[in-house]
Amino acid sequence: MITIAKLKTLKDRTCVRKCALLFHQQATLALRNQHEPAYLAALTGLFDSPQFRSVLGESELARLAGLGVKLSLLQEAELAVACEDIHYLLLQALGSDSADWDFVDEEGNLDSSQRTILDHILVLDRLRSPYNIGSIFRSADSFGIQKIYLVEGCAAVDHPRTYKTSRGCTRTVEYEVLGEEAMLARLKILDLPLFALETGGTELDVFPFPAKGIGVIGSEELGVSPALLGACEASLGRLSIAQAGTKGSLNVAVAAGIMMHGWFSA
């Protein structure tokens, strides 16, 4: 745990960012009644420091002071909520944010070492929406996907909307962009079982998910391309998700998430 003396020597924004992470850690500890009251009190003492006054506005400082007073009066879940309120207030002041209970390193980046990685690979075939690409990366991070291949024509992984929707997971899941011909050649080299997430296939609850394999996901409009679908049908075929509503298909990112969870749990 970084010392208060060390925090006081850091540059303004670095100090505030470190403190945000420390309050996040203390929130986690508070839920198990393992927080450190003396350390929390020392952290709140920094609220009036030059570093904090340089980064936060007067209204933010006032709210921060009010939250700091509450900390000594709270325990466990209520204390955790107050610590998280401080965490997010500091991130907002820095113009940054993170998802609830992320595993992060000391620099505030998602900690890839916390991931469980399986021999599961995805191929995204011409998904045009950066929001869908980002959402799939976020689910892929959670459900053990080793790597994502994107066929040329997909929305850019480095698009701001992709990154924002992924909540940083475009940096935790390995990926590569290939043309369709190069992708087909790569599939031959990998020589793994293939299946397509498509209508008209075996339903998810009885699908024979491979321990090592590749799932291909196409666009909502056109589905998986004929060439890639042919490769899948020559292997494990199609996987389908049963539905009981009025829509003909699910959002592709939602469907991909359901499929990834089924594969992860198999």
Score class of each variant (00 low, 15 high):
residue 48 D to K: 13
residue 261 H to P: 01
residue 14 T to I: 14
residue 97 D to V: 09
residue 227 A to E: 12
residue 109 N to T: 11
residue 258 I to T: 03
residue 155 A to W: 06
residue 49 S to H: 05
residue 235 S to A: 12
residue 186 R to H: 03
residue 184 L to F: 05
residue 199 T to W: 06
residue 135 S to I: 13
residue 11 K to S: 05
residue 235 S to I: 07
residue 151 V to P: 04
residue 123 V to P: 04
residue 245 G to W: 06
residue 241 I to C: 08
residue 168 G to Y: 12
residue 203 E to K: 06
residue 9 T to P: 00
residue 166 S to T: 09
residue 86 I to A: 08
residue 235 S to W: 04
residue 197 L to M: 12
residue 155 A to K: 09
residue 122 L to G: 00
residue 214 I to T: 04
residue 258 I to R: 03
residue 204 L to E: 04
residue 14 T to W: 02
residue 161 R to W: 14
residue 57 G to Y: 11
residue 41 A to H: 13
residue 112 S to G: 06
residue 31 L to I: 15
residue 195 F to M: 10
residue 251 N to Y: 04
residue 215 G to C: 12
residue 195 F to L: 04
residue 101 W to C: 15
residue 12 D to C: 05
residue 157 V to P: 08
residue 122 L to A: 06
residue 42 A to F: 00
residue 80 A to N: 08
residue 31 L to T: 08
residue 176 E to D: 03
residue 263 W to Y: 07
residue 93 A to R: 13
residue 128 R to N: 02
residue 121 I to A: 00
residue 101 W to A: 07
residue 210 P to W: 00
residue 243 Q to F: 12
residue 1 M to A: 08
residue 15 C to Y: 02
residue 100 D to Q: 10
residue 87 H to C: 13
residue 206 V to K: 10
residue 77 A to H: 11
residue 199 T to F: 09
residue 225 S to N: 06
residue 96 S to F: 15
residue 246 T to C: 03
residue 254 V to L: 09
residue 71 L to N: 03
residue 118 L to F: 11
residue 167 R to D: 09
residue 136 I to Q: 06
residue 60 E to G: 15
residue 133 I to K: 05
residue 92 Q to K: 15
residue 42 A to R: 00
residue 134 G to V: 12
residue 172 T to W: 06
residue 18 K to I: 02
residue 108 G to K: 07
residue 185 A to F: 11
residue 89 L to C: 08
residue 261 H to A: 07
residue 219 S to E: 04
residue 161 R to I: 15
residue 118 L to N: 06
residue 92 Q to S: 15
residue 23 F to M: 10
residue 202 T to R: 03
residue 233 E to R: 12
residue 206 V to M: 05
residue 61 L to A: 14
residue 131 Y to E: 13
residue 214 I to S: 00
residue 190 L to Q: 02
residue 199 T to E: 11
residue 198 E to D: 07
residue 54 S to Y: 09
residue 25 Q to E: 14
residue 130 P to I: 12
residue 236 L to R: 01
residue 230 G to E: 13
residue 196 A to L: 15
residue 173 V to P: 03
residue 51 Q to K: 09
residue 39 Y to T: 01
residue 170 T to C: 12
residue 248 G to K: 10
residue 186 R to E: 05
residue 204 L to I: 13
residue 263 W to I: 08
residue 138 R to N: 05
residue 24 H to Q: 13
residue 8 K to A: 05
residue 18 K to T: 01
residue 107 E to K: 14
residue 182 A to L: 04
residue 170 T to Y: 09
residue 35 H to I: 13
residue 194 L to Y: 06
residue 118 L to S: 05
residue 262 G to H: 09
residue 193 P to I: 01
residue 95 G to M: 15
residue 184 L to D: 02
residue 227 A to P: 01
residue 169 C to V: 11
residue 167 R to E: 14
residue 4 I to A: 01
residue 210 P to T: 05
residue 224 V to R: 02
residue 152 E to S: 02
residue 171 R to G: 10
residue 198 E to A: 03
residue 94 L to N: 07
residue 109 N to A: 14
residue 151 V to G: 01
residue 224 V to L: 10
residue 41 A to W: 11
residue 187 L to I: 04
residue 257 G to Y: 02
residue 56 L to A: 07
residue 162 T to K: 08
residue 223 G to S: 13
residue 154 C to L: 02
residue 151 V to Q: 07
residue 12 D to M: 07
